[in-house]
Computed example of a mutant assay.
Amino acid sequence: MSDSSLHSPSLGLAAEPELKDYFALLKPRVMSLVVFTALVGLLVAPVHVHPFLVFTSVLFIAIGGGAAGALNMWWDADIDAVMRRTRNRPVPSGKVSPGEALGLGLALSGLSVMMLALSANLLAAGLLAFTIFFYVVIYTMWLKRWTPQNIVIGGAAGAFPPMIGWAVATGGISVESLLMFTLIFIWTPPHFWSLALFMKSDYDDAGVPMLTVTHGHDATRRHILAYSVALAACSLALALTSIGGPVFVVTALVMNARFLLGAVRIWRRDTAQAQADAYGVEKRFFKLSLWYMFLLFGALLADAMLRGLWGGFA
């Protein structure tokens, strides 16, 4: 796969792009997790933030996340066209030209960083700028096509939003924000590796050195189990900080038990067993991983609300 194919893909526009095609460039499903974790990071901080600042900050963080998604689709148009999961994205399907995706991504990147700096503070804006740079340059342009550790290191890009939210509220970085970052960072590899297990030949066909391709499915299953154990430890460490509380403790215990059980089930299988049930266990684990992250961050938010109510009664 030559570098030239990245910048001159043979993708013709099938018709005039619609608004929904441009919106799809922003990866709205991925953006939903970015928005939610950033919002939680902002609201659980021990500082009162004006609702208008909360709204504008989360909006600009969402725009920055969407900008990174558009730049990712611009650069990855060649491999997206090969993979079944991504071939209908706006650029490979010909709905949006690569140049339009690039222009939109660059414009929204600059807008989001500048506006967050003006509305919040320079640290939050700097973290957002670094997040976009990390996702587009470090992960998309370099790690993704070079190393099976792509999703491990690249997972940092998706882990920054709660740190950005915390920085909006406090103007700084703390143990709490670092542990929220670490929680998402450790969660990302088993989340994506379970997807890679049941996507079968997609990454092979695209030439992406995902762990399933370079080390095989058995090694990937062992890695999922190891990271799931580390994830449980990280979530329990977060429970011991100032933003932990009874709702988070109970949620973490229940979800980690389910997550570890799912990881053990994957670890005990072989490829023949997985193929026999159409990778049902892996698909369920992938869906569970989505619920895991939303519920744990939702629990942090619930505990913050309880502390606010308790403080009001005190």
Rank of each mutant, 00 (worst) to 15 (best):
M1Q: 01
D3R: 09
S4M: 04
S5T: 15
G12L: 05
E16G: 07
P17N: 08
D21R: 01
D21I: 05
F23C: 04
A24E: 13
P28T: 10
P28A: 04
L33I: 08
L39I: 07
G41H: 02
L42E: 05
L43E: 14
L43F: 15
V54W: 01
T56C: 02
F60T: 02
F60S: 03
A62Y: 07
G64V: 12
G69M: 02
D76W: 05
D78E: 11
T86P: 08
R87K: 12
P90E: 08
K95D: 14
S97Y: 14
E100R: 13
L102C: 12
G103A: 15
S109T: 09
L116G: 02
L118K: 04
S119R: 12
A125F: 02
F134K: 01
V136L: 13
L143P: 05
P148I: 05
Q149I: 06
N150P: 03
V152A: 11
I153H: 08
A156Y: 07
A157R: 04
M163K: 00
A169C: 13
G171L: 06
G172Y: 06
I184H: 00
I184Y: 00
I186R: 15
T188C: 13
P189Q: 02
P189K: 00
P190C: 12
F192D: 04
M199V: 01
S201K: 13
S201Y: 08
A206V: 10
L211D: 10
T214G: 04
H215I: 12
G216L: 13
H217W: 11
R222D: 10
A237L: 15
A239W: 13
L240P: 01
I243H: 07
F248R: 01
F248G: 03
F248N: 02
T251M: 12
A252E: 05
L253A: 15
V254Q: 06
M255G: 12
R258I: 01
F259T: 13
R265H: 06
I266E: 09
R268I: 00
K283N: 05
K283P: 04
F285E: 08
F285S: 10
F285V: 09
F286A: 15
L290W: 05
W291I: 12
F294C: 06
L295A: 14
D303W: 05
L306R: 14
G308V: 00
W310Y: 13
